[in-house]
Write a protein that binds this DNA or RNA. Structure first.
Lengths: 338, 338
DNA sequence: CTGAAAGCGCTAACAA
DNA sequence: TTGTTAGCGCTTTCAG
């Protein structure tokens, strides 16, 4: 592999000029720049990432730390962020916390601090103050997506609002018998998304003067099978069924729809179902949902981070960014039958 | 940040000894090693990735190149590979080829060759000879998952066999009116998975002396909506329907099941459906499928790669590894009604 | 088993 | 605008 000295020699300039010409940093005469670039191309020269990083301190690499990879929300955020990063010449290194618990410590200590990344995106991760401190101590920009972390800039939606919008949609349609298909907090590190949304659900009901029915207070694991099982159990348990269901995720909502159909009932005629997410499959299942533009959350996180890393540094960006959400009305919700 | 000299000083040894003690390479007296490790811990010392890489040539980083991130097969492979890599102290850098076409060239030239990775895993990517040459020219181990690449070691299943098993399962049950719900080749870079499977389907039919019905030759994009639409269209087009459907992916099979139900028919009573994949949702939809152990394919790819990178280098591993597949019988297939 | 010292290839002051 | 040069922090011969 040709190195910078080879290029310098072939172009008849110094290595410093080659560096400047190729990196775009510093001033180089246009014709010199052109010459260097041509020579570099001819020689098939590519800068050595490690040498460049060692001397400059820049890695051109952003770490994404996530508890899941194959779940919709997470892969969507990753894809959004990655696309922006790649477009700006940044690599994306993935740290998956799915494994053992102490892998988490290892990842923080050995990987992030080893200086492999310029910045970190944490997806739906309740970082401990200790972890936040560590990252900040090595002076790396950190941004969270999907849950607020004390002392850390975060991209997220207003969980209360999104649940309120969903519930209100059913109330506005005239429903008064409404079930909640909420999520369960699975980990100590969770963000209480589930409880926040449930609270908003209850408040919306209260605002309409409705007493919640405990038998209609379902919780599942955010997945289709989970939503199905809970809904099926509720329908099997009693003939007294709700006319509407507010699900905390689109996948659970889809599970609910399937359960309702399997029980010989119809959506929305017998039961209306609304989800939260804006999942790829929502349209297929004709699901009314509150879209939270997940991919865009990832894109924005990457954009903000790049802004902090790159020379320009234009927009300082607000400390916590509340993303907009939007009710998307489809065929799974309707007025309850008289 | 403490550097290696700080540790050496505090431990009263040379930097060379610190390096040896901490990296495990070279011989160090047990007590010296222990001492160094303790001192390093106390000082919170972590090796600088770039410095280490520059001087050693090792990156402790494997690149995964994939055309998709959020599709089941791909995220499954990535998760499997990543888990193994992380467990061995390797980072995983993701290169997503989803964007523009020329991003592909950039990724190869600027990223992989820039020496950021020690090895490359390519998921379902038909690399051009030129791309393979480039990677080999920089002497980086490369392994493909899910499609054979000339001159490259590959982990994959026998596409012919998997389709034959699926078709044969229906034949064995006594079906003689069988539809094919195959995939479409979406990209020039595809591996003809779709056509290979379709061929095997036809061969299996021929073996049973059955003439395929052109009206039952469906193709879709491997997704649930795609499978649904094709199946629904077929059922709507004529009363002459098959008693079984062989789908080239579980998601399409699920779409078919939903379409059959929506058409007022039952699975498997009216129509049997079998998929190929071993998708997470197969169990939920009670889908008979041919499991191809995708996650395991990712794990194996990573294992083989590490084997090439790491000092030990035990197993040379075969040049092309055909993964086993397994028929998983569930409730979506049964004997056709008399 | 340990230490000395020569780089690894590039960037960024500083000078010119 | 360009060149000179001193590192960046670690690994790895080579000696001892």
């Amino acid at each position: 592999m040709a190195d910078i000295a080879d290029v310098a020699r072939a172009a008849g300039v110094s290595t410093a000029t080659v560096s400047r010409a190729l990196s775009g940093r510093g001033i180089v005469a246009p014709r010199t720049k052109e010459l260097v670039q041509r020579v570099a191309d001819e020689l098939g020269y590519v800068v050595s990432a490690s040498a460049s990083s060692l001397s400059s301190g820049r890695m051109r690499n952003v770490g994404i730390v996530t508890p899941f990879l194959s779940r919709w929300f997470f892969s969507e955020v990753i894809e959004g962020a990655q696309q922006v990063l790649t477009a700006h010449g940044y690599d994306t290194t993935l740290y998956n916390l799915a494994g053992e618990a102490n892998q988490r410590k290892i990842i923080f200590d050995e990987f992030l601090l080893r200086g492999r990344v310029d910045a970190v995106i944490a997806i739906e991760l309740a970082l401990t103050p200790e972890e936040v401190r560590k990252i900040h101590s090595v002076d790396k920009p950190l941004i969270g997506v999907g849950g607020e972390i004390p002392g850390v800039r975060t991209i997220s939606i207003n969980e209360t609002e999104v649940a309120r919008i969903a519930t209100q949609h059913l109330l506005d349609l005239g429903h008064r018998s409404i079930a909640s298909l909420g999520g369960v907090e699975q980990f100590e590190t969770d963000f209480h998304v589930a409880s926040t949304r449930h609270l908003a659900f209850l408040e919306a009901l209260a605002g309409a003067g409705i007493e919640p029915n405990p038998a209609w207070d379902l919780t599942a694991d955010f997945t289709i099978p989970g939503g199905y099982a809970e809904t099926a159990a509720m329908l099997a348990a009693s003939d007294n069924r709700p006319t509407g269901i507010v699900a905390s995720s689109d996948e659970m909502a889809i599970g609910a729809i399937l359960a309702i159909k399997d029980a010989g009932l119809r959506v929305p005629d017998d039961i209306s179902v609304i989800g939260i997410d804006g999942h790829d499959l929502a349209e297929f299942f004709n699901l009314t949902t509150v879209d939270q533009f997940v991919r865009h959350q990832g894109e924005l996180a990457a954009t903000i981070l790049l802004d902090e890393i790159m020379p320009h540094r234009t927009s300082p960006a607000a400390s916590n960014t509340d993303m907009p959400v939007k009710l998307v009305t489809r065929g799974s919700t309707a007025r309850p039958r008289a």
